[in-house]
Design a protein around this nucleic acid. Sequence first.
DNA 1: TAGGCCATCTGGTCCT
DNA 2: AGGACCAGATGGCCTA
Length: 185
Amino acid sequence: MKSKGKGSKRTRRSWSEQEHSDFQLETEPGSSEQEGSEASLQLGGTWKALKAEGSTRLAARRRRRQHSSAKERNVRRLESNERERQRMHKLNNAFQALQEAIPHVKMDKKLSKIETLTLAKNYIKALTAIILGMSGACLPHEGTQPEESPVKLLQRYQQHLEDDKIGHDDLSKYLDQIHSFRHSS
DNA sequence: TAGGCCATCTGGTCCT
DNA sequence: AGGACCAGATGGCCTA
């Protein structure tokens, strides 16, 4: 895993750190909040949200915001930041769990998020191909049964574990990917 | 040094 | 109304 200085992530000027300069701009009632928001959007280079929004909602939100003081908004923003941080941490934990659920990967290297998703997708496809192949082999009729429940498929898979019927394209693809990850690390 | 990846902040929208 | 979710922006760290 990459060693990333966690403390250094807060080097960007935060909302609360900007509060004094921002609040000084709020001298004219009714103009400060929205203008500040638009200015930040302009600086950010995105007008998508503004274009998409109706004027009614905008006005409602503007009224709502004007009722709260700068201090209250500051507190809500900080709370909101903390919630977002926790949400992202949970998301990262889920990514970590997913990575550990993929065999032959967790000991090798830290996968990026896109690598984790791609590998998991291929792994699922490989397992699905194997299970479908096995279930098809022991069915009385030709072909597979798409309507068969995953539970039944899993049961068939468990019944035929000792048959070792491996060798599908998806599995090869998955194994190739594992191999490339190992060699790239 | 450029590019990839990431954490965090932020404002908007959706949902309960 | 407030929290969850989302996407854009920003800046730091790491590696080729």
